[in-house]
Design a protein around this nucleic acid. Structure first.
Length: 143
DNA sequence: TAGGCCATCTGGTCCT
DNA sequence: AGGACCAGATGGCCTA
Protein backbone atom coordinates (compact mmCIF):
# COMPACT_ATOMS: atom_id res chain seq x y z
CA UNK A 1 0.00 0.00 0.00
CA UNK A 2 1.09 3.54 -0.65
CA UNK A 3 2.38 5.56 2.25
CA UNK A 4 0.03 7.96 3.84
CA UNK A 5 0.32 11.69 3.64
CA UNK A 6 2.76 12.80 6.30
CA UNK A 7 1.09 16.15 6.79
CA UNK A 8 -2.28 14.66 7.57
CA UNK A 9 -3.07 12.15 10.23
CA UNK A 10 -6.01 10.12 11.36
CA UNK A 11 -6.11 12.17 14.49
CA UNK A 12 -8.56 14.61 13.02
CA UNK A 13 -8.75 17.85 11.09
CA UNK A 14 -6.36 20.61 11.84
CA UNK A 15 -9.20 23.10 11.99
CA UNK A 16 -10.65 21.40 15.05
CA UNK A 17 -8.75 23.29 17.65
CA UNK A 18 -8.43 21.38 20.90
CA UNK A 19 -8.68 24.67 22.77
CA UNK A 20 -11.97 25.72 21.21
CA UNK A 21 -13.94 22.83 22.65
CA UNK A 22 -14.01 20.57 25.63
CA UNK A 23 -11.49 17.70 25.68
CA UNK A 24 -14.35 15.20 25.55
CA UNK A 25 -15.87 16.79 22.48
CA UNK A 26 -12.49 17.10 20.83
CA UNK A 27 -11.82 13.45 21.46
CA UNK A 28 -15.21 12.47 20.06
CA UNK A 29 -14.60 14.56 16.95
CA UNK A 30 -11.18 13.09 16.31
CA UNK A 31 -12.41 9.57 16.97
CA UNK A 32 -15.25 10.04 14.47
CA UNK A 33 -12.91 11.55 11.91
CA UNK A 34 -10.50 8.70 12.31
CA UNK A 35 -13.29 6.16 11.87
CA UNK A 36 -14.56 8.02 8.82
CA UNK A 37 -11.07 8.02 7.32
CA UNK A 38 -10.78 4.29 7.86
CA UNK A 39 -14.15 3.71 6.22
CA UNK A 40 -13.18 5.89 3.31
CA UNK A 41 -9.95 3.97 2.84
CA UNK A 42 -11.88 0.72 2.89
CA UNK A 43 -14.40 2.08 0.41
CA UNK A 44 -11.66 3.18 -1.97
CA UNK A 45 -10.02 -0.20 -1.54
CA UNK A 46 -13.24 -1.85 -2.69
CA UNK A 47 -13.44 0.52 -5.61
CA UNK A 48 -9.87 -0.27 -6.64
CA UNK A 49 -10.54 -4.00 -6.35
CA UNK A 50 -13.45 -3.53 -8.72
CA UNK A 51 -11.20 -1.63 -11.14
CA UNK A 52 -8.63 -4.44 -11.00
CA UNK A 53 -11.32 -7.00 -11.81
CA UNK A 54 -12.49 -4.87 -14.67
CA UNK A 55 -8.91 -4.54 -15.99
CA UNK A 56 -8.62 -8.32 -16.10
CA UNK A 57 -11.75 -8.62 -18.21
CA UNK A 58 -11.07 -5.75 -20.57
CA UNK A 59 -8.68 -6.19 -23.54
CA UNK A 60 -5.34 -4.42 -23.42
CA UNK A 61 -4.06 -4.79 -26.98
CA UNK A 62 -0.58 -5.79 -25.87
CA UNK A 63 -0.06 -2.78 -23.62
CA UNK A 64 2.48 -3.52 -20.93
CA UNK A 65 1.41 -0.59 -18.86
CA UNK A 66 -1.53 -1.01 -16.53
CA UNK A 67 -4.59 0.89 -17.71
CA UNK A 68 -5.47 3.95 -15.69
CA UNK A 69 -8.92 4.12 -14.13
CA UNK A 70 -10.13 6.48 -16.82
CA UNK A 71 -8.72 4.26 -19.58
CA UNK A 72 -10.25 1.18 -17.97
CA UNK A 73 -13.70 2.75 -17.99
CA UNK A 74 -13.33 3.95 -21.57
CA UNK A 75 -12.09 0.55 -22.66
CA UNK A 76 -14.92 -1.25 -20.88
CA UNK A 77 -17.44 1.03 -22.55
CA UNK A 78 -15.93 0.48 -25.97
CA UNK A 79 -15.66 -3.26 -25.38
CA UNK A 80 -19.30 -3.59 -24.43
CA UNK A 81 -20.31 -1.60 -27.48
CA UNK A 82 -18.12 -3.76 -29.70
CA UNK A 83 -19.60 -6.97 -28.34
CA UNK A 84 -23.04 -5.53 -28.78
CA UNK A 85 -22.25 -4.68 -32.36
CA UNK A 86 -20.94 -8.17 -33.02
CA UNK A 87 -24.14 -9.65 -31.63
CA UNK A 88 -26.30 -7.33 -33.69
CA UNK A 89 -24.36 -8.02 -36.88
CA UNK A 90 -24.37 -11.75 -36.31
CA UNK A 91 -28.10 -11.73 -35.74
CA UNK A 92 -28.61 -9.67 -38.87
CA UNK A 93 -26.49 -11.84 -41.16
CA UNK A 94 -26.95 -15.15 -39.40
CA UNK A 95 -23.72 -16.30 -41.08
CA UNK A 96 -20.76 -16.66 -41.63
CA UNK A 97 -19.84 -15.40 -38.15
CA UNK A 98 -22.51 -17.49 -36.53
CA UNK A 99 -20.35 -20.52 -35.95
CA UNK A 100 -17.46 -18.42 -34.68
CA UNK A 101 -19.83 -16.49 -32.42
CA UNK A 102 -21.17 -19.68 -30.87
CA UNK A 103 -17.64 -20.77 -30.22
CA UNK A 104 -16.86 -17.45 -28.52
CA UNK A 105 -19.93 -17.69 -26.32
CA UNK A 106 -18.64 -20.98 -24.97
CA UNK A 107 -15.58 -19.08 -23.83
CA UNK A 108 -17.32 -16.15 -22.16
CA UNK A 109 -16.43 -17.14 -18.62
CA UNK A 110 -14.19 -14.92 -16.48
CA UNK A 111 -11.68 -17.73 -15.92
CA UNK A 112 -11.43 -18.57 -19.60
CA UNK A 113 -11.59 -15.03 -20.88
CA UNK A 114 -8.22 -15.01 -22.72
CA UNK A 115 -9.67 -17.21 -25.46
CA UNK A 116 -11.71 -14.19 -26.53
CA UNK A 117 -8.54 -12.60 -27.76
CA UNK A 118 -7.47 -15.56 -29.93
CA UNK A 119 -8.33 -15.56 -33.57
CA UNK A 120 -8.41 -18.46 -35.93
CA UNK A 121 -8.12 -16.30 -38.99
CA UNK A 122 -7.00 -12.79 -39.94
CA UNK A 123 -10.54 -12.05 -41.03
CA UNK A 124 -11.90 -12.64 -37.57
CA UNK A 125 -9.22 -10.47 -36.03
CA UNK A 126 -9.99 -7.73 -38.51
CA UNK A 127 -13.64 -8.03 -37.76
CA UNK A 128 -13.39 -7.65 -34.01
CA UNK A 129 -10.75 -4.91 -34.25
CA UNK A 130 -12.92 -2.94 -36.61
CA UNK A 131 -15.70 -3.23 -34.07
CA UNK A 132 -13.42 -2.00 -31.36
CA UNK A 133 -12.77 1.70 -31.60
CA UNK A 134 -11.25 2.78 -28.31
CA UNK A 135 -8.21 5.00 -28.90
CA UNK A 136 -5.79 5.90 -26.18
CA UNK A 137 -4.35 9.01 -27.77
CA UNK A 138 -7.51 10.96 -28.29
CA UNK A 139 -9.57 9.21 -25.60
CA UNK A 140 -12.08 8.56 -28.31
CA UNK A 141 -14.86 6.07 -27.97
CA UNK A 142 -17.18 5.11 -30.74
CA UNK A 143 -19.54 2.25 -31.32
C1' DT B 1 11.19 19.42 -14.12
C1' DA B 2 6.37 19.22 -15.56
C1' DG B 3 2.46 16.50 -15.98
C1' DG B 4 -0.24 12.36 -15.11
C1' DC B 5 -1.96 9.26 -11.87
C1' DC B 6 -2.99 7.93 -7.47
C1' DA B 7 -3.84 7.56 -2.18
C1' DT B 8 -5.40 9.93 1.53
C1' DC B 9 -7.76 13.38 4.29
C1' DT B 10 -11.59 16.26 4.82
C1' DG B 11 -16.11 18.47 4.96
C1' DG B 12 -20.59 18.43 2.91
C1' DT B 13 -24.86 16.02 1.69
C1' DC B 14 -28.10 12.41 1.76
C1' DC B 15 -30.09 8.37 3.73
C1' DT B 16 -31.42 5.03 7.38
C1' DA C 1 -26.33 9.87 15.19
C1' DG C 2 -23.76 7.49 12.15
C1' DG C 3 -22.64 5.48 7.70
C1' DA C 4 -22.13 5.87 2.57
C1' DC C 5 -20.93 8.58 -1.08
C1' DC C 6 -18.83 12.39 -3.28
C1' DA C 7 -15.71 16.14 -4.73
C1' DG C 8 -11.91 19.20 -3.67
C1' DA C 9 -7.30 19.70 -1.85
C1' DT C 10 -2.83 18.00 -1.16
C1' DG C 11 1.37 15.61 -1.68
C1' DG C 12 4.05 11.41 -3.30
C1' DC C 13 5.69 8.60 -7.11
C1' DC C 14 6.84 7.81 -11.81
C1' DT C 15 7.93 8.83 -16.57
C1' DA C 16 9.06 11.54 -20.70
Amino acid sequence: MKSRRPSCTDSGSESSEPDSQSPEKYETTTRRRSAANARERKRMEGLNTAFDRLRKVVPQWGEDKKLSKYETLQMALSYIMALNRILTDARRHNAPHRQWLDLQFDCVQPESYPCLMRYDSPTEQEYIQSSFSYQFDGHQVQA
